[in-house]
Design a protein around this nucleic acid. Sequence first.
RNA 1: GCCGAGGUAGCUCAGCUGGUUUAGAGCGCUGGAUUCAUAACCCGGAGGUCGUGGGUUCGAGUCCCACCCUCGGCACCA
Length: 535
Amino acid sequence: MASPTYITTPIYYVNDRPHIGHCYTTGLADCLARFSRLASGDPSQTYFLTGTDEHADKVVTSAAAHGMTPLQWADRNAAAFEEAFRACNYTHDDFVRTTQDRHKTKVIEYINALLASGDVYLGEYTGWWDASQEEYLTETMAKEAGFISPVTGKPLVKRSEKNYFFRLSKYQARLKAHIDAHPTFILPEARRNEVLGRLRDGLEDIPVSRAVTDDPASRWGILMPNDPGHRIYVWIDALFNYLSVVDRPELSRFWPASVHLMAKDILWFHAVIWPCMLMALNRPLPRRVYAHSYWVREGVKMSKSLGNFVTIEVMQAYAARYGMDALRWYLLTQGPSGTTDADFSHARFVEVFNADLANGIGNCASRVGNMIDKYFGGVLPEGVREHVAEGSTRSLSACCAASAANTMKALDTCDAGEALLAGIAIVREVDQYINLTSPFKLAKTVDADPSAKTRLADILYTCAEAIRVASVLLSPGLPTKMAQLWSAWGCAPAAGATLESLASFAGVHGLRAGSRVTKGEILFMRADPAEPAPA
RNA sequence: GCCGAGGUAGCUCAGCUGGUUUAGAGCGCUGGAUUCAUAACCCGGAGGUCGUGGGUUCGAGUCCCACCCUCGGCACCA
């Protein structure tokens, strides 16, 4: 597990305002990164990258509309993303912006290499030009539109221009072979099938440059190193970020990336174009490309026209009322990690909050902490060991081991939600165990029967230790609240400890006899379902 | 249009190569028990024609056909 782990999100279009979509992808990456650091015990072996994509033409026009230079505009908006991610407690190790020199110089290197190998060549692009929109439509799209502009209705003009092309077609067979040989290269599986399906239709070379025109806006971007009449197409520029950031001696161990996370709309670029470009560069391919689905809001698709995006402001309102951990929890466990879209529904949010957090880990930690406080003055007694409930088929230590295994298994497929839920399974078991063993009844017999005290100690230790294990598994999703619990129970994970050792029941990092276990504050106060959604 | 996925309890979904189930889980709902805890937790229940109609088979959510419905992908859009 000591092997370097490199997790990326897309770099976000800097003209956008941060919303739940960006935060979800980045949050998924954050959770996986936290798990990764925990698993290896060595944070320096994990690299989590996010950032912004800034060379789109519209950045120039938006900047102008706001009376700024493109870079000023990009500075401002990139900062908004960084602020949003900070508010979400994301732990990215780096935030790359495509306007940074460290990126641009590398992109030029890569393009030069591709020019030298002949994988990028000057060709001619012919398409249907929509003069009003200043963009080309593909043959199929033009046909669908009846060869008129879908926006203005004016006729499209067949037009050609010189462009640099990438020899995508050359790599089709190799890519297919790679996908076939690596069943989890593209996940979820349904996405993989989509890619394979489209691959059967064949690949054509793709333009990777745009002409530089009289319009000053067309100079925004990275110029083709050999030909100032062209600049590198923004998508190509953007894809290189994954490599450019770690392509230096101190970080080179992180390539190839462990996983590129993204939403389903940009799978093609990551699963086909990017891998082929890497092959052309003789670089290893990322180990995995993972495309999740979308969020909808209260059952309705989010759109600009409806103005119903779950914005960062909405998210912060939720965080203000329920805590950022609770919001993280909802996103991670209820999110669209699979092929179907997920609903951001307030009613559902409250249900999940109460079920998993308030009534789950929150209440269970509270009842256990309270009993230790009440019956043992908040000090874990000496000589404690695991106690197994009579008539119970499995012990809590076994349950902890099973949950830890389930977490690791879920992480194999980047399923952060399942990985987290394994922790809740322990909590459920502890609640059951408490009802089965009734320590609160036992406590009333202690005066008459001294041996009961020992059993009581064993029972409560068993509960507390199981919850500690659960807290470890939950911590990548609930970092703040679990840290709060650790502080109350004096069991913060030791630096350098691995997930495996931390999750070991009564192992080297288990709760120690004699340590103080205070009640602490309520972790998650039960939410009122009747209360309207935060504004 | 082409390619693909799916329609299972109120909701979200498990059910892989057909007979271990009298079709399951979580949440919600509803009875009961309990009091250590955040009216929390625990136990029980509620009976869903497993989209529709055929077919194959000793036996089909689980295979085949048709149909209805929903959804996703279709390359220069971050």
